[in-house]
């Protein structure tokens, strides 16, 4: 087993354990901390694949900004342990079965097509960050500008939603 494969299995186990913990935990704060573990493990996987810029953005934007927003809202609303009705407890086992079927189907379908992906692969030296900036500001410049508009609309929407109504 090569060291790369070993690192992959360690990070993959960490990610899956974090995802399971996100579902099993009863308190939303514990779920949020589990999700941070998943995101850091995924950033490690991105580094393993040689996507340094995406790994850095994953840590800064996901692990930093978005999760801080989540934890902030959980504390703001003083969210407690979630309550289950009898119906949602009953729905667990068949739901789990269906989810396993879905994941298996997805993995099998995509994994069967990766043979053609590897056949089409071209080995080229790609310096990741420089290449991404070239593509982002040359080929994808219109979508990139649209995202700034999207963020502006999101800021305005969040402000309007969260403000207290004047009575």
């Amino acid at each position: 087993m090569t060291p790369q494969l070993l690192i992959f299995f360690v990070l993959a186990a960490l990610a899956v354990l974090g995802a399971v913990s996100l579902i099993v935990q009863k308190h939303p704060i514990h779920s949020a901390l589990s999700l941070i573990v998943v995101m850091v493990a995924l950033a490690g996987l991105y580094l393993l694949m040689g996507a340094e810029f995406v790994a850095a953005v994953q840590i800064i934007v996901y692990g930093g900004a978005i999760m801080v927003l989540f934890v902030f809202v959980i504390m703001l609303l003083n969210a407690g342990i979630e309550e289950h009705t009898s119906l949602s407890k009953f729905a667990g086992p068949p739901g789990l079965l269906l989810v396993v079927a879905l994941a298996g189907f997805l993995a099998a379908t995509i994994a069967r097509s990766t043979g053609t992906v590897q056949a089409a692969a071209q080995t080229g030296t790609m310096s990741s960050t420089k290449g991404i900036s070239n593509m982002l500001f040359r080929d994808f410049v219109y979508p990139f500008e649209l995202t700034s508009f999207l963020i502006l609309v999101a800021i305005m929407g969040a402000t309007v939603l969260a403000q207290r109504e004047k009575s």
């Binding site: 995802a19 779920s31 989810v99 298996g104 993995a107």
Partner: peptide, 28 residues
């Protein structure tokens, strides 16, 4: 391997989305 891991994580996300009752956890 990456694709299978991705499918497993997606499945766990779907399960959490359907099974959890707390709206913040559903969003996560």
């Amino acid at each position: 391997y990456y694709v299978i891991l991705s499918a497993v994580l997606f499945g766990l996300g779907v399960f959490g989305f359907v099974f959890k009752r707390n709206i913040i956890t559903i969003f996560m």
